[in-house]
Simulated assay, not measured.
Amino acid sequence: MKMTPVIVTDGDSVNLTCNTTCTLIGHTYIWYRNKQLLTNQEVSLHLIPVSTEDAGNHSCAVKGLESLPSPEKKLIVTYGPKNTSVSVSPSGEIVEGSSVTLTCSSDANPPVDKYTWYKKTVTSPTASGQSYSITNITSEDSGDYYCEAENIYGRLSSPLVSVDVQYGPKNPSVSVSPSGEIVEGSSVTLTCNSDANPPVDKYTWYKKTVTSSKASGQNYSIANISSEDIGEYYCEAVNTYGCLNSTALMVIATGLCFNLKIQGCCDGICIE
Rank of each mutant, 00 (worst) to 15 (best):
C22I: 02
Y32H: 12
S128I: 14
S70L: 10
E140N: 12
S162Q: 13
N239R: 06
N239K: 04
V112H: 04
N193M: 05
S13N: 15
N245G: 00
R33H: 11
S91C: 04
W31S: 12
D164Y: 11
E53G: 08
V62C: 10
L190G: 09
Y118M: 06
N197H: 14
L256H: 05
T121P: 00
T204G: 03
S186K: 03
K73S: 12
S51L: 05
P178R: 09
T126M: 14
P5H: 03
C270Q: 05
V163F: 02
M1V: 01
S177H: 04
E184H: 04
I222E: 06
K208Y: 01
K82F: 00
T78N: 15
C266M: 00
G242I: 01
Q166H: 15
C265K: 02
S70Y: 08
T254W: 00
P110W: 14
S99I: 11
T78S: 14
P178H: 07
S213N: 10
L45M: 11
P178D: 08
Y220P: 00
S142R: 04
G264C: 02
K261N: 13
S89K: 09
S194M: 10
S91P: 06
I230Y: 10
T209I: 13
E236P: 02
D54P: 08
K214R: 10
V163Q: 09
V112F: 00
S133C: 11
T247A: 09
G129R: 09
A248G: 05
Q218I: 06
